[in-house]
Design a protein around this nucleic acid. Structure first.
Length: 649
RNA sequence: GGGCGGGUAGCUCAGUACGGACAGAGCACCGGCCUCCUAAGUCGGCGGUCGUGGGUUCAAAUCCCACCCCGCCCGCCA
């Protein structure tokens, strides 16, 4: 017998039995919801009902008395996966599984379904676009941004396993002013060939250029403010200027040659600000020279991103250029339609979108889950000079994506919650209510550094590459210490998947709504509750199977009588439900927790009970089959969050 | 001022959607376990006003109300 969801099979049986018993014991009573719970302790069985507490109110008897009466009415001849039903505590009804059957069902199911075990498909698959990372091509990905691809990729893997058709998109924001800043600096240097990794090289240019330009601008503003005798403003500008001057000193210290070079070239320019604005405008207008330059810089930087992300096995189906959207007139078209809406108004040459009015007139607050007094501020669509803003272009991008997919999941930091909400409201305003319902902002909190604030504009950050390098280095030291007998090649391979796995796990395991404080110890944890711990458990299971060197011929599942064994089986049986919950509620951390819990139980089992040498043979075979199921489930779970499951380490 | 997150053991966090049995892990600290299938393991000990106060309920970390603390957002930036 095989079930794609063994635990659900047990649950259904319990529900049926309970419903009939209830009807028999209390024919007059109608209970709508027979929801079952998972008892906190295995001694209380595998499923329980607390319906007697509810019932007690209606009938006026003690819950435990009712529980006893219902249990008495239970028809035991219908038991298959159930062993016993018993009243317990002050009024619970506890159901114990018949493990002889339940173990067989669970282990056989895992074994039969193999790499598909747990991955229950939806009835109606959707086309889903997961947009994630989408970092501006200005500097290398840093640890603060790294949470994004880890979560986004895990979501994409989960949706795919759920049966959806998934497309991973990267939105390249090359139209913003910052892209022109870096390109300006790059051009001033004579478009050099990158030394080292291109994103790292360009990141230095960006930081220095941006800093010098900022200082230049502030100086001009300062003079203007002084001339106007605006004392308060002078103080404010001075403070900002001090900040940037100290950043400049820092950068000069770190990259003396490049700094001097850029300083010399940029100071020759009378008005860098103008040059940058011109470049920016030219790019939006599709000017050939601007296009060539900016695309070249962006492509170089993206190449660096691709290299970094391929180390963590993150790949994309589509790289979407914001500029393409602008040049193809899609932005203009959306704008045209927005202008005809009663929610868009012009204010001194600036086009504004009245999100508040949309909420009110279309009565959306409740639908969007907003409080009655939640006011949403207006969104500026077009500047006085006629250029568009980021969110405006994002509306066009969103509609473009909806031509290709039924559902969008945007993995974007929670600081953009308002902008994403305004975008969703704009979809409603444009008459795309259905699309809006399928538009999800998957928000995550920041990664912070202890001690100082990460600032990409100031060049103060730890790059994702550095983190991975360090992780692999530490993993190498670890593996050398633990397994000195391995060959150099093996050690390096192990160090790689252990180090990278540890990083991935650390960034996926914490609930995305919580901020993560980055510390090396946290991310490079190789002990319990880490990827290496789970990987090690998987390798350990593989090792047992290898040493056994035989297939379990006649597993006697009824002999798996230990509490530990039952707990493992229950955990394996619950994998399909865990997977469904994780993918439906967008919670990759559940998968990490699950894999950790299974490992935990299996290691306890490993220490307490023999597998290969167990007597009789039927028990040994059953434990071998159990070990194989653990191996399989761990591998399937790790796959979902993009972590490699090694057979040896 | 308004909105959105968060506040659970010394530290890092599960658990909150859908209220249920004594609130769970890991790290740190203390003490055991490798002639036995991988010790990246395992067993035991230590550790809690679930931010505060009220309310609803047979039952509240979980739901409701008020307040306090931390972060983010409220831009003709992205």
């Amino acid at each position: 017998m095989v079930s794609e969801n063994p635990f659900a099979a047990l649950q259904t049986e319990v529900q049926n039995v309970l419903e009939k018993a209830l009807k028999k014991a209390f024919p007059a009573i109608l209970v709508r919801d027979l929801a079952l719970e998972k008892p906190p302790n295995p001694e209380f069985g595998q499923l329980a009902s607390s319906l007697c507490f509810e019932l007690a109110k209606q009938i006026g008897e003690k819950p435990i008395a009712l529980a006893k009466r219902i249990v008495k009415a239970v028809n035991k001849s219908e038991f298959s996966l159930i062993e016993t039903a018993a009243p317990a505590g002050s009024g619970y009804i506890n159901f114990h599984a018949n493990f002889a059957r339940f173990s067989a069902l669970t282990i056989n199911s895992a074994s039969q379904l193999g790499t598909e075990y747990g991955f229950i498909k939806v009835a109606k698959p959707l086309k889903i676009i997961v947009e994630h990372t989408s970092a501006n091509p200005l500097h290398p990905l840093h640890i603060g941004q790294a949470r994004n691809p880890m979560l986004g990729d895990a979501l994409a893997r989960m949706f795919k396993a759920r049966g959806h058709e998934v497309f991973r998109h990267y939105y390249i924001d090359d139209v913003g002013r910052q892209t022109s800043v870096i390109t300006y600096g790059y051009e001033k240097l004579g478009q050099p060939k990158p030394e080292g990794k291109p994103d790292h090289f360009l990141g230095k240019i960006y930081t220095i250029t941006s800093c010098l330009v900022e200082i230049n601008r502030l100086k001009k503003e300062l003079e203007r403010a002084k001339a106007l005798k605006a004392d308060e403003e002078v103080t404010k500008i001075n403070r900002e200027l001090d900040d940037w001057v100290s950043v400049a000193a820092e950068l000069k210290d770190r990259f003396p040659e490049l700094f001097e070079n850029l300083l010399e070239k940029i100071s020759k320019d009378k008005n860098p600000e103008d040059a940058i604005n011109k470049l920016n405008r030219g790019y939006e207008e599709g000017n050939a020279k601007a296009k060539r330059l900016i695309r070249k810089v962006s492509e170089l930087c993206l190449q660096g991103f691709k290299d970094t992300l391929s180390r963590v096995d993150v790949f994309y189906d589509s790289w979407d250029w914001e500029s393409d959207l602008v040049w193809s007139n899609r932005v203009a078209e959306v704008l045209q339609r927005l202008k005809t809406m009663p929610y868009v108004f012009s204010l001194g040459g600036v086009l504004e979108f009245d999100a508040e009015k949309v909420l009110r007139e279309l009565d959306l607050r409740k639908k969007l889950g907003l409080k009655e007094d939640h006011e949403v501020s207006p969104l500026t669509l077009v500047r006085a000079d006629g250029t568009t803003l980021y969110t405006t272009r994002d509306i066009a991008y969103t509609l473009w994506k909806f031509e290709k997919a039924d559902r969008l999941v945007n993995v974007i930091g929670m600081e953009q919650t308002l902008a994403q909400l305004q975008l969703k409201i704009a979809l409603h305003a444009l008459g795309y209510g259905k699309h809006a319902d399928n538009f999800f902002h998957f928000a995550y909190n920041l990664v912070t550094l202890p001690g100082y604030k990460m600032s990409s504009r100031r060049g103060r950050f730890i790059t994702f590459d550095e983190v991975m390098d360090e992780a692999v280095k530490r993993a190498y030291e670890e593996v050398s210490k633990r397994s000195p007998q391995l060959s150099e090649k093996e050690k390096q391979e192990i160090a790689d998947f252990v180090g990278i796995g540890a990083v991935r796990y650390a960034l996926v395991e914490v609930d995305p709504s919580k901020p993560v404080e980055f510390t090396w110890d946290r991310v490079l944890n190789f002990e319990k509750n880490s990827a290496p711990y789970i990987q090690y458990t998987h390798a350990r299971a593989c090792s047992i199977l290898r040493k056994a060197a035989r297939k379990p011929k006649k597993p006697a599942y009824e002999l798996l009588g230990e509490k530990l064994e039952h707990e493992i089986i229950l955990a394996l049986a619950i994998f399909p439900d865990t997977f469904i919950e994780a993918s439906e509620f967008l919670k990759p951390s559940l998968i990490a927790d699950f894999a950790n819990a299974v490992s935990d139980k299996f290691n306890t089992f490993y220490n307490a009970l023999p597998v290969i040498k167990a007597e009789p043979q039927g028990l040994s075979d059953a434990r071998l089959a159990l070990t194989d199921a653990v191996r399989l489930v761990l591998r399937n779970a790790l796959n979902l969050i993009g972590i490699f499951a090694p057979e040896k380490m």
